[in-house]
């Protein structure tokens, strides 16, 4: 359970999660429309999408809380619809809203869910102790959940989903409202779970987390998988880094493909910042005297994501 080098996904005949042709409608509205997704063991897949894209519905169907209208979901080869009980023991769910018992202590909460999953005596004690340590909750083990801070409750919430050592971990915006320290701890825990061979499906609106997790990104839109790629691939596909040249006074027009001028600044798209930097400065010619600053604006996941969503709207 300790963080270590990222071994990456473990492709094999039985993926951690396989979704085929998943369809789910509510009141005639198709929330999930023929969704296909395979997540290998040891892989973190980050599920992105605007509100209402179907992320939580997808997680609920995978967890067995909602029955799909069509399609199949299998967890480590076990069909969630046909053999829900067999699949359930392998799934840990931390939904958006904190779900703990306020009148029970931290330890009692963890022990309860561990016992329900079939852990007994020594096995249960070891699992609870390990989680308390990992989630930095050991000093609070005898404190009632209602007395915890929001961040501590959220850690306990995630702990309750992990206490039975599930092989598929479904985390639906687990860091929503969490402080930076809690968020960092949870991300470290998620990465460790994947490194330990677990399969993680992680929904979030915090794109920085996705980059930190180095997760594979699956973007849902209108109930469909709109994009499925690594962070770097997504950035390369939808955005480019830019050289930003700032001048004293009005910025000159430069003969550069895709260049744009805004007041005293010129933005020059680039795939090779090091090479293009020299070239761009040379191109300024007589205006070089007025050149105040040159910066590199690196493309990020957020820009790529917004571009992708924008492209979706334009279609």
């Amino acid at each position: 359970m300790t963080p270590g080098p990222t071994p990456g996904p473990l492709p094999g005949p039985t993926p951690g999660l396989r979704i085929r042709g998943l369809v789910k409608s509510f009141g005639g509205r198709r929330v999930l429309d023929e969704v296909d997704l395979v997540v290998e063991r040891g892989e973190v897949v980050s599920l992105l999408g605007p509100n209402g894209a179907g992320k939580t519905t997808l997680v609920s169907v995978v967890a067995g809380l909602l029955r799909p209208d069509a399609g199949s979901v299998s967890v480590l080869g076990t069909d969630v619809v046909r053999a829900p009980r067999a699949a359930r023991g392998r799934i840990g769910l931390a939904a958006q809203d904190v779900a703990v018992y306020p009148t029970h202590t931290v330890e009692e909460n963890l022990r309860f869910f561990g016992a329900l999953a079939g852990l007994r005596r020594g096995e249960l004690r070891t699992s609870v102790d390990t989680l308390l340590e990992t989630l930095d909750l050991t000093p609070l083990r005898r404190r009632r959940a209602r007395e915890l801070s929001g961040g501590q409750q959220r850690r306990l919430h995630v702990g309750c989903a992990l206490v039975h050592r599930p092989r598929l971990i479904l985390l639906d915006e687990p860091t929503a409202g969490a402080d930076p320290q809690t968020r960092r701890g949870l991300l470290r825990q998620v990465r460790a779970l994947a490194d330990d061979g677990g399969t993680v499906l992680y929904t979030t609106h915090y794109l920085q987390e996705v980059e930190e997790l180095d997760a594979r990104v699956v973007v849902l839109g209108d109930g469909r998988v709109r994009e499925d790629a690594g962070v770097d691939q997504l950035i390369a596909r939808y955005t480019r880094s830019e050289l930003v040249l700032r001048f004293s006074g009005e910025a000159p027009e430069l003969p550069w493909p895709g260049a744009r001028v805004a007041g005293d600044t010129v933005f020059l798209p680039t795939d090779r910042p090091g090479v293009d930097l020299v070239k761009a400065v040379e191109l300024t010619g007589q205006d070089r005297e007025r050149l105040r600053a040159v910066e590199l604006s690196r493309a990020g996941l957020e820009a790529a994501y917004l571009e992708l969503l924008g492209a979706g709207r334009d279609e």
Binding site: A63, G64, L65, R85, R88, G89, I91, G92, L93, A95, D97, V98, A99, V100, Y101, P102, F113, L116, A117, G118, C160, A161, H164
Partner: peptide, 14 residues
């Protein structure tokens, strides 16, 4: 109300 019903239903509990 505590959102724990969903958690119980994801557990192997019948």
């Amino acid at each position: 109300g505590l959102n724990t019903w969903a958690r119980l239903r994801v557990s192997p509990l019948r």
